[in-house]
Amino acid sequence: MAAISLENLTKRYGDVSANDGITLAVEEGEIFGYLGPNGAGKTTTIRQLLGLIKPTEGTATVLGADIRNRKALTEVKADLGYLPDELGFDERLTGNQALDYFARMRGDQRREELLELFHPPLAKKIETYSAGNRRMLGIVQAFMHDPELVIMDEPTAGLDPLKQDRLHQFLAEEVASGTTIFFSSHILSEVQRVCDRVGIIREGQLVALEDIEKLLDRSGKHVWLHLRDDVVENEFVTEEMINVEITDNAIQFTYTGDYNSLLSHLTSYAIDDIEISNPQLDDIFKHYYSEEFTEET
C-alpha cells in the first residue's frame, strides 16, 4: 500500500489552479522529494493531504485514509508527523511546555532520543527562539511519537549547514528503519542528496516523476574540456550537445547521446584536460523550466 497516493488532485481558486490534476504515489519506506519553486503549489498539496483545505476535484489517501473522509483522516494522524514551513507555536509556552502539549495528543516515546540530536533551549519561551531553534523544536515534535509518515515542508529553512547535515543523516536513518518521508523543498541540491524519487511541480502541474538516478541518466552528462587549440564551433559541436558554452579553447556542454560516439568523436582532438560528471539537479531543473519546455506544454 502506498503511504500517500494522489489521484487527479486539483485545487482551484477562481481561474487559478494551485494544483492541477496531480497523480502520484509515495511508497512506504521511501523518501520522496516534492520539488518546485516557491508558489508552484507544493504547500497547497500538503494542506490538502492534512485536510486543512478541500480539493476541488480528485482526491488523495494518506496512510490509507481518504482525505475527504474527515473521521478516517483524523484517526491516521496519530501515525503522522508534520513539519510545516511556518511553525506556529504558542509563543508564550516554553519549548518543553509545547512538547508536553503535543505529547498529550499523540505521545512522545522518542522525545529524549531526538533532543540529543536537536536541542533547542527547552526551558525558554518560544518567543525568544531563533529560526534555527524554532526549526529544531519543529523537527522534534514531528518525529517524537515515532510516526509512520512524516510530511516536511521546507524542512531545513533556518537551520545552519551543520544542522542541515545532521537532519539529512537523521532522515536517511529513519527511512532505513521504515519511515516514509514526504520532503517538499525548492532547494534542488538538498533533494538530490536526500531523496530516492522526485516529483517536480511547476505552476500546479506535475511535470516529472522519476528516480533521482534515472533523472540524472536521462539528463545526460556534464562535459568540460580544454583543447590544445581553440574550439571551432560548427566543426566540434554535434546535435547531442546542449547548453554549449565556448571560451577560446575551453568548452562545456551537456551530452545527451550515446557515450561511445562521444568518446570516438573526442579522439580526433588534442585534449589537455577533461571532466565528465553528473549534471546538478539545478541544470535538469533549468530544463523543466526552460522556455523550450513551456512551448512543449
Binding site: 486543512l52 508534520y82 495528543m105
Partner: peptide, 15 residues
C-alpha cells in the same frame, strides 16, 4: 492567522 491551527490539526483531533 498565527499558523497555530496547522500544527493543532496535524494531531489526531477533529475540528
Amino acid at each position: 492567522d498565527r499558523r497555530r491551527m496547522d500544527l493543532t490539526l496535524s494531531n489526531p483531533v477533529s475540528r
